[in-house]
Structures are given as structure tokens and as C-alpha cells.
């Protein structure tokens, strides 16, 4: 069993608890144990918070990192935004001594010290990594294959970009997420401009919601064009933007899509036999019933 400190973030535990519940249960079936990271806070949001003061952003993210260092566990998380904050600050502080001593000066006030002893992973990359889990193990864990469902993959931005700092390779047309989706028995579909942003990031959702929704709308047009039965993503904030966004788009632009939006862990949960009730799919703004009738 590989053990990780589970960094929750905000939107997964506080808006889509099904993401949290499914992550804990699905990962256990493939040999990954997620332990609670007690006292963690917001990552803090790279766009909304980092835009104001990056220096404070480094210090706040470092505090979360120190909590995991004290547990002597690497961090696993399920949100691209959190990945940007937690992974990137860890990466920067490990390689920038000046910044590290600045941050440690602040952390000293709360009796903490950043040492740079742990690594940070997105749960999806652990699923994909054959040394930890791998596609075959995911396939073997499936009891209810999502046969017949066309699923559109949304990678999101902050997991893989900027490419030169990360280790995921190509960001123009990656295919590893599709492999994971195929492993749960669904049919991953390709659509135009797959790597486009959901529109919510950088504080734009709060600053100019119509602008953010217009970007989302473009993605939804491209996704509906290929007849996708559902969207799956790796980031609860993208999920919020696609899910609640569809209701807001209906109100503001009059366009109706009704495409259910599931976090990959929720999809994997369904495939491993968790019921829709176990995933609190009723909290989703877009009704998931048509998709569930197709696959269950």
C-alpha cells in the first residue's frame, strides 16, 4: 500500500463531497491509501490569491507543505488548481534558496520550517504511473464497466501547463487521460480544441462571469458536437464551471446542453460499483440520470 497525505483543497470537500469520498474509496482498491492532512487550508487559489501577492501565496502554500512534511508523507491531491499551488511552490522552493529563506522567515513566526523533503502528485498521475498503480490495475478494479458511454476528457490547465516546468510532456494533444477513461470501459471521444481552458481560472469567474461562461460555452459547443454523454475532468473547479456553468449559460445565453460532468474519481467510483448515492451525484447541478441509465 502506497500512503499519501490527501490534500483536499476547497471545492472538492465543500461543494462536491462525492469527489472526496470516491477518491478515498477508489484509490484504496488499487493500492493507494489517502491519509487526512489535518489542518490544511485553501492551497491558496493560484489565480484569485496569487494575483494579489505571490509572496504571500508562496508562504501560504508552504504552510500546507510543512504539514505533510511533518507527517513524512508525499501529498496526493485531486484538483489542478491545488496542483499549481502545492506542486509549483514545492518545486520553486526546492530550487530557489533565496525564496526559501524568505518563506522560512515568515513560517518561523508560527514555529514551522519548510525543508523540501516531500513530493506532490495528482492522484490521476499516480493512477497512470505503472510503478504506483498503472492502467492495468485500474482496468482490473472495474466491476461495472461504463460500456457504451461516450466521454469527453477535459485535462484542465494547471496540471500540465506550463509544459517546460512540468513532466507530463505534450500539452497540445495529450492522450494519457483518454487511456484512463478507456480503462473504466467508456469510449473517450476527441473534440475540437480539447486543451482549451474551462474559463473559470485566474479569478475570471468572480471578475466577469459572462466572459468566463462564454469560454465555457465554446467548449460545450465543441463537446456536444461529437455527441458526448458526459464530461470528465481532473479538477473540481473545472467541474464547478462546467456543471453549474451549464445552468448559468442557460439563464444568460439560452443555450441548453444537459451534459453531466463527473470528476474522474467519480467515474472510476461508478465503474468500481459505487452507487450514485455514494457519490452524492444529486448535488451536481446537471442531472446525471440519463448517463447513469446508459451505463448502470
Amino acid at each position: 500500500m502506497h500512503e499519501y497525505a490527501f490534500f483536499l483543497g476547497c471545492i472538492a470537500p465543500n461543494r462536491y463531497p462525492g469527489c472526496e469520498a470516491s477518491s478515498i474509496k477508489t484509490s484504496e482498491k488499487v493500492g493507494i491509501k489517502l491519509l487526512p492532512l489535518e489542518g490544511a487550508s485553501c492551497c491558496p487559489a493560484p489565480g484569485a490569491f496569487g494575483s494579489i501577492d505571490l509572496t504571500v501565496w508562496y508562504a501560504m502554500a508552504a504552510r500546507n507543505l510543512v504539514l505533510a512534511e511533518q507527517m513524512k508523507k508525499d501529498i496526493a491531491l485531486i484538483c489542478n488548481g491545488c496542483y499549481k499551488s502545492i506542486w509549483e511552490v514545492n518545486h520553486i522552493l526546492k530550487h530557489n534558496d533565496e525564496l526559501r529563506s524568505q518563506v522560512n522567515e515568515v513560517l518561523k513566526e508560527i514555529d514551522m520550517e519548510y525543508k523540501g523533503t516531500i513530493d506532490v502528485f495528482h492522484l490521476a498521475e499516480l493512477y497512470y504511473d505503472p510503478k504506483i498503480c498503472g492502467i492495468q490495475k485500474i482496468r482490473d478494479s472495474v466491476t461495472t464497466p461504463m460500456t457504451g458511454a461516450k466521454v469527453a476528457c477535459h485535462y484542465g490547465c494547471h496540471l500540465m501547463k506550463p509544459q517546460k516546468d512540468r513532466h507530463f510532456g505534450d500539452t497540445e494533444n495529450p492522450m494519457w487521460f483518454e487511456e484512463l477513461v478507456a480503462a473504466v470501459g467508456a469510449e473517450p471521444v476527441q473534440y475540437r480544441n480539447k486543451m482549451q481552458c474551462c474559463g473559470a481560472g485566474g479569478g475570471v469567474r468572480g471578475y466577469d462571469i459572462v466572459h468566463a461562461l462564454d469560454i465555457t460555452n465554446e467548449k460545450l459547443i465543441n463537446i456536444s458536437e461529437v455527441g458526448a454523454d458526459a464530461i470528465t475532468e481532473l479538477c473540481p473547479f473545472c467541474q464547478l464551471q462546467f456543471d453549474r456553468g451549464q445552468i448559468e449559460i442557460k439563464e444568460k445565453f439560452g443555450d441548453v446542453y444537459n451534459i453531466p460532468v463527473l470528476h474522474f474519481n467519480e467515474l472510476l467510483g461508478l465503474a468500481q460499483g459505487m452507487s450514485p448515492q455514494d457519490l452524492a451525484l444529486d448535488l451536481h447541478a446537471v442531472d446525471c440520470t440519463p448517463f447513469l441509465q446508459k451505463v448502470l
Partner: peptide, 10 residues
Amino acid sequence: WLCTTCYSCT
């Protein structure tokens, strides 16, 4: 304030 920080330009 309209940048979504998607890093496509980067």
C-alpha cells in the same frame, strides 16, 4: 484581469 492563467501562451 481577464487572463484565465491557462498558460497556453506560455
